[in-house]
């Protein structure tokens, strides 16, 4: 917990949070900010460069790129969040349970997670799309399931070290239930790790959403997404060489901000200063 509070004081974390704040705002109100209907085709301006009317130009059927980016934010971010949310649910809870529910559950859950980890990401997503239908939710379900082992592993690692912690033993001696121990002693220690993993997983999921939509899985064409735009713009590289720049930059900046935030939490300034403090005391 303290790690989280202290991390926010780092400049890099503040910049990252500011960037992510902008992305969230875009996600929430981007559609209304868009100067044009993202699906409206302006046949008089196809593959146009930036101009007063179209700040970021138009694409191959004359749609306004800025409008599509703004509108696409919501689909891209919501999709990634959906996947990460499912991953959290399917990873963190079994991760905690595997430490505190006994050997049978531990063995079973480990085998399931090992199995999931062996599946290749994109191919599994394609297979799920083929099975459940090609929709964003289906694709994100697949991504979420595949993110679960990551969350499971880090939660287990963070919680496993605490099983033998003396303050956990002390609580056991007071007659505390496992649930109470997880709530009062374990959760706070696991939380920073989970937050870090969520940030990196979110970054990964955004990339996966972008790659999947780039491949045409998840979102059907006219609907705008960052990855989908990148894909279509790449096809017209010779006519509009800077075309993919805008969606690519947006993806890169968001992913970088998430990773920077994760780093800031991991580099805990408290530990280094505390050590110095302890040394002085002695």
């Amino acid at each position: 917990m303290r790690a989280l509070r202290l991390a926010v004081r780092l400049p890099s974390a503040r910049v990252a949070l500011a960037v992510l704040g902008v992305v969230v705002v875009l996600m929430a109100v981007g559609e209304w900010l868009a100067p044009y209907d993202p699906l409206h085709q302006d046949t008089t301006a196809i593959l146009a460069g930036p101009s007063a009317e179209h700040w970021l130009g138009t694409d191959y059927v004359g749609r306004d790129v800025l409008s599509r980016l703004l509108a696409g934010s919501r689909l891209s971010v919501i999709a990634a969040a959906e996947a990460v949310g499912l991953g959290l649910l399917l990873g963190v809870l079994p991760g905690l349970a595997s430490v505190y529910l006994g050997r049978v559950f531990e063995w079973l859950s480990l085998r399931v997670m090992d199995g999931l980890m062996a599946l290749p990401f994109i191919i599994f997503a394609i297979a799920v799309a083929a099975l459940l239908g090609n929709g964003l939710h289906q694709a994100m379900f697949a991504v979420g399931v595949l993110l679960a082992p990551t969350f499971y592993r880090v939660t287990r690692a963070a919680a496993g070290g605490l099983r033998q912690a003396q303050y956990v033993e002390a609580a056991t001696l007071f007659g505390a239930t496992r649930w109470r121990i997880v709530r009062t002693h374990v959760w706070q220690k696991v939380l920073p790790t989970v937050v870090v993993t969520t940030a990196t997983a979110m970054a990964g999921a955004l990339l996966v959403v972008s790659s999947l939509t780039f491949l045409g899985i998840g979102v059907q064409p006219p609907a705008p997404t960052w990855g989908g735009m990148l894909a279509s713009d790449l096809g017209y590289l010779s006519q509009r060489p800077f075309g993919p720049l805008a969606p690519a930059l947006l993806i890169i900046v968001t992913v970088a901000a998430l990773n920077a935030l994760a780093d800031a939490i991991t580099v805990d300034p408290a530990t280094s200063t505390k050590e110095a403090h302890d040394a002085v005391r002695r």
Binding site: S272, E275, A276, A279, V280, R281, R282
Partner: peptide
Amino acid sequence: ESGSGKTLTCRAILGVPPPGV
């Protein structure tokens, strides 16, 4: 007693004062 500066003094003599000292 602890906090009397005995370990600090000794670490300074060894050329390894704690960080910041």
